[in-house]
Design a binder for these strands. Structure first.
Lengths: 210, 210
DNA sequence: GCTTTTGAGTGAACGCGTTCACTGAACGTG
DNA sequence: CACGTTCAGTGAACGCGTTCACTCAAAAGC
């Protein structure tokens, strides 16, 4: 072992390769069969390891799901937050929501499970989701403040609380969608945000949502 | 068998008694140990039947949970909707939310599971929850219209959409509470409703939430 | 009263997620 | 190079929810 580079070592390399193989196989199985129908033994067999090996690398089946899909969600979040196209607050909020809805729409078999796991995650995944929610919340607050600078919303409006309201609407729309109660989560989000913003406009510029 | 009364018959009576015994035992086990930790074999043993009998009366373990606790939720909902004490729209909405929060607070061990099952229920329970949500939604709309008659909210405000916003806030506050992110769901609900109502007031009577 | 049908109740067996005592190859040390 | 140590990987075993061929007493038909 030299002082410059921490040599990976055959053992570490093997372990990382095994872990990656399991993860890739798991992603495939989950997206094909859904969460409940996916079989840990089958994933292990396809990845060329014993059943026990899967649970050596991941705490349990749900942990495997999180590990397999969290990266994608993080990438979606990073991209959505990076969006800097101009527009009204409503338009920018719309695009933010639409990016996340697209993430779920891409995985129809898994979206119900994904949403459930996102909302009701246990540690350590709970902390990671909270962190990501905080990042998006921060973005919403930033968009709100930018709109305030443009005179789009009132000076005394509570930006942080608006961010919370946004998440309420976002999650409610998602739940309604996965439960089949509403065909278009984006449309529902737009309407709710529009009604909420009614009272947050400058006094001179009030427009009501019907 | 006479034409007037459908005689229960020993068999029917036995079956109903068995079902009731299982349900009572299940309720006890669920509230004591939580959903995952509760054991179907143990419930069966305590109810004095074989394991298979439990799943003869209920489709699966989750179905048993629903059957064991749905009545309580329905009673809570019925009582909350019946409340006719006077007050401002915000006060009445507050009481409505508080009644449901109290239902969950009464079952700290189960509340996370209960909420998850309420939001992501599968048929046939999904239909029953939808029905109950619709009833409460109707009540919110009625409260909103009553407030409108009092001149508390604008004539052209969308009452149905306000009802949807209420549920968004209600569920978000509940989720935040069971996940430990917010200590008081009622306070969060109040603040969100107050901000939402900003823009729905008559033009002459605008007050902003900070 | 005797026979047939019905359906509540049974429990061994199955598939699944998960555990853990064990194996052996890679690694550090003299 | 020989030795003990570490740790990725194993697979039989466990507990659980769930299934289903079976039992037998109650109801229905004769």
């Amino acid at each position: 072992m030299n002082a410059f580079t921490q040599k990976p070592g055959r053992r570490d390399a093997q372990r990382d390769a095994t872990r990656a193989r399991i993860l890739e196989t798991a992603r495939d199985h989950f997206e094909r069969h859904g969460f409940e129908a996916a079989n840990v033994r089958a994933i292990a067999a396809d990845a060329g390891v014993a059943a026990g090996t899967v649970l050596l690398h991941f705490a349990d089946k749900r942990d495997l799901l999180h590990a397999a899909l969290f990266d994608d969600l993080a990438a979606t979040a990073a991209e959505a937050v990076r969006d800097d196209e101009p527009g009204t607050l409503e338009q920018r909020i719309h695009r933010l929501g639409a990016a996340f809805f697209a993430y779920y729409a891409r995985r129809p078999t898994l979206s119900k499970t994904l949403l459930r796991e996102a909302l009701f995650a246990d540690p350590p995944w709970q902390a990671r989701f909270t962190e990501q929610v905080a990042a998006v919340h921060g973005r919403v607050v930033a968009l709100f403040n930018a709109a305030r600078a443009q005179g789009e919303v009132a000076d005394d409006a509570d930006a942080a609380l608006f961010g919370v309201a946004f998440f309420s609407f976002y999650y409610f729309a998602l739940i309604a969608w996965v439960q089949g109660a509403h065909p278009s989560p984006v449309a529902l989000l737009d309407r709710l945000v529009a009604q909420h913003l009614c009272g947050l406009r400058p006094a001179a510029n009030v427009r009501r949502a019907r």
